[in-house]
Computed example of a mutant assay.
Amino acid sequence: MKVNPHDLDEETLFLVSQTFKALSDPTRIRILNLLFNKEYSVNEIAETLDLRQSTVSHQLRFLKNLRLVKYRREGTSLFYSYDDEHVMNMLKQTIEHAIHS
């Protein structure tokens, strides 16, 4: 799909820039990459990536606000997974590009 640059409204421009902002942070990239294969709780993400729980929660909130991740509740635990196939494919291709270079 080709997009005419004159068709981009302010809301679309903002969302695109926020998505790239989300993908410009190494911690958020690590979290999204981890979520590519399965869902994780905040504690599991923190433990797997050796991050503080508060850091993970903060980054997940940012990603959730952009609809890049979603969660489901199981008892008192929240399990996060990715919510946007397009962004995940872009991330995967970018990682493959960086490895290939």
Rank of each mutant, 00 (worst) to 15 (best):
L35I: 02
E39K: 03
R28A: 08
T27W: 10
T27F: 10
K21W: 06
L34H: 00
V56G: 11
V42L: 14
L32K: 02
T19Q: 01
A22C: 05
I29N: 01
S57K: 15
V56P: 04
Q18M: 00
L32F: 06
A22N: 09
S41Q: 13
I29E: 03
F36V: 03
S41R: 13
K38D: 01
Q53A: 08
K21E: 06
N37H: 11
A46Y: 15
A46G: 13
R52M: 14
P26V: 02
N37K: 12
Y40S: 08
T48M: 08
V42W: 02
N37W: 03
K21N: 06
E47V: 09
K21S: 02
V42P: 00
T48D: 08
S41L: 14
T27E: 13
L23H: 00
S57I: 13
I31N: 00
T19M: 03
P26N: 10
N37A: 07
R52G: 11
N33S: 08
T48A: 11
L32D: 04
K21F: 04
L51E: 04
Y40I: 01
R28L: 14
N37E: 12
L32A: 15
S41I: 03
V56S: 14
R52P: 07
E47A: 12
T48Q: 09
N33L: 01
S54M: 12
L35T: 02
D50Q: 09
I29T: 01
T27H: 06
N33T: 02
I45T: 06
S24F: 03
